[in-house]
Computed example of a mutant assay.
Amino acid sequence: MDFSNVTSQVTNGVAARPEASEPDSASLLATDFSNFLNLLTAQLRAQDPLSPVDSTQFVEQLASFSTVEQQINTNTKLDQIASQLGGGELDTLAQWIGKGVETRAENVNYRGGEVSFRAPDADKYDSVTATVTNAQGEEVHSFSLDKTADTHSWDGTRSDGTRALNGAYTIELRYEGGGRATRTEPASQFDTVREVRLTDDGWRLFLGNDRSIDLDEVTAIVS
């Protein structure tokens, strides 16, 4: 029993229905894929133990199996992209490229460059101090912020003047004075959007320092 032409029959069967809509074509391809699997399974069960299927032919049939599977996955992915593009999301998100976004991140990813962040309401307090700690909870650096600046940064310098190692760090802000109660909170990390990409988990924004975030992690967009 030879099924070497199953793949061509499957693809030709779909191509022979030009009047079908895109969802119908995907459904037909999925049905043909199921039939292909059933035929291949039947062949293995019915083979003569004394004269099994030639290994070369078997490998070719498995390759055909993989080709059909890839066709189905590709069609599904294209449907997802078409749905996203149809909603105008790409046009909207493309306008974010080059703009700054603010995120509430528990950790910042230091990779040798500057880590930018914001300190909301800094002008309402007498002083604001940023404290950087490493993944072990050890203080790496502490410094006062210029309350008049829109954004702030840590360049990786430690308190002793040496450079910090690459890795995850936490930046905590301490607001004091101004007739208000002292408050501490994580810094609002700030970075520029460099790329917008549709992944298996949805749209993601790719930022500096090898960071990528989901859309729901954005708390503000800054021109």
Rank of each mutant, 00 (worst) to 15 (best):
I97F: 03
A105F: 06
N38E: 10
G13Q: 11
A187D: 05
E106W: 01
E172R: 03
T131K: 06
G202S: 11
E217T: 06
S223M: 03
A20K: 14
Q80T: 01
A149M: 09
A16E: 11
A130N: 13
L93N: 03
I97D: 09
T67Q: 15
W96L: 15
A30C: 02
T184V: 12
L62Q: 11
L50A: 12
K77D: 02
F190T: 07
S8T: 13
F190E: 06
D54V: 02
P120E: 04
A187Q: 04
T184C: 03
R183I: 08
T192R: 13
D150T: 12
A119G: 07
I72A: 11
T76L: 02
V218R: 14
R118L: 06
S116T: 08
G112A: 08
P120I: 08
Q47L: 06
S127M: 09
S21G: 11
N75R: 12
T103L: 15
P186R: 15
N12C: 02
S4I: 11
V115D: 04
R204Y: 13
H141K: 10
V128P: 04
H141C: 02
N38L: 12
F3C: 09
T131R: 10
G156A: 02
T199P: 04
T170I: 12
G137F: 00
Q57A: 15
R197H: 14
S142G: 05
N38P: 00
A46Q: 14
E22C: 01
N12F: 06
S8E: 15
Q9T: 00
S4M: 13
R45Y: 13
E114H: 07
E139N: 10
I81G: 05
P120F: 00
D214V: 07
F117N: 03
Q9Y: 02
V222T: 15
T103Y: 06
S223R: 13
G137A: 03
L44N: 10
S83C: 04
V193N: 05
S223K: 13
G161P: 11
H152A: 03
K147E: 06
D200Y: 09
G208Y: 01
G100M: 12
V6I: 11
T41G: 09
W203T: 00
I221P: 09
G98T: 02
E139L: 04
V140R: 03
D121R: 10
I97K: 15
A30N: 11
K124H: 11
S153E: 05
Q136A: 15
F190C: 08
L145P: 01
P120R: 05
